[in-house]
Amino acid sequence: MTRLAIAINKTRCIGCQTCAFACKMQNNVPEGMRWNRVITEGCDVEDGALGTYPNLSRSYLPIACQHCENPACQRVCPTGATYKDDKGRVEIDYDKCIGCRMCMAACPYNARVFNWNEPVRKPDFNFGDKEVPVRPKGVAEKCTLCKERTDRGEEPMCVRCCPTKARTYGDLDDPNSEISKLIAERHAYVLLEEQGTKPQVHYFE
């Protein structure tokens, strides 16, 4: 089996948002949507800080689909549009999506975005990878772990573009992969472990 995933070194993340925009470019993500966002943890304002001066702290958390082993979104999808593929990625078949948004209610990570309107792009053309399907209005979408790139054997665009090399991509089922070693050595953890979704995306300090 293959379980493709990303591990993110939070100490390296500088909150530059490059991964968020690289994702948007690659995947033809329309206006008003992000598949990947970088939040300033626990803060009401972006680039804010926690604590009282001079004891302040700030940390960034890049968050997208966690490609869970036990995906809540897949469980609730009435039409089977959301599925777990043979490479361990959670994917959406847009032709099957009826836009009920059950998945958005079930996802604990708010990873999904919905095409509320006819998608608007600025500039006004499909700027993404030509292999990435263009989604119509009325369907849900989210990070595909750059399905089209990873199918070609390339790494996801967010991993490729991260200027601080905070992201590592690989196969969790291969014990010799860089990602498996990092997760073991750096005591990586997952987001909202108590939700029981068993995310494949890992974080470490």
Partner: peptide
């Protein structure tokens, strides 16, 4: 009310062809 809430009502027949027994909506 469920039908007007759907984003893709033209694909609603997919519930029958792709019926997912774990979905409470089904």
């Amino acid at each position: 009310f469920v039908l007007v809430d759907l984003g893709g009502i033209q694909r609603v027949w997919r519930i029958i062809t792709g019926f997912n027994p774990t979905s409470p909506l089904c």
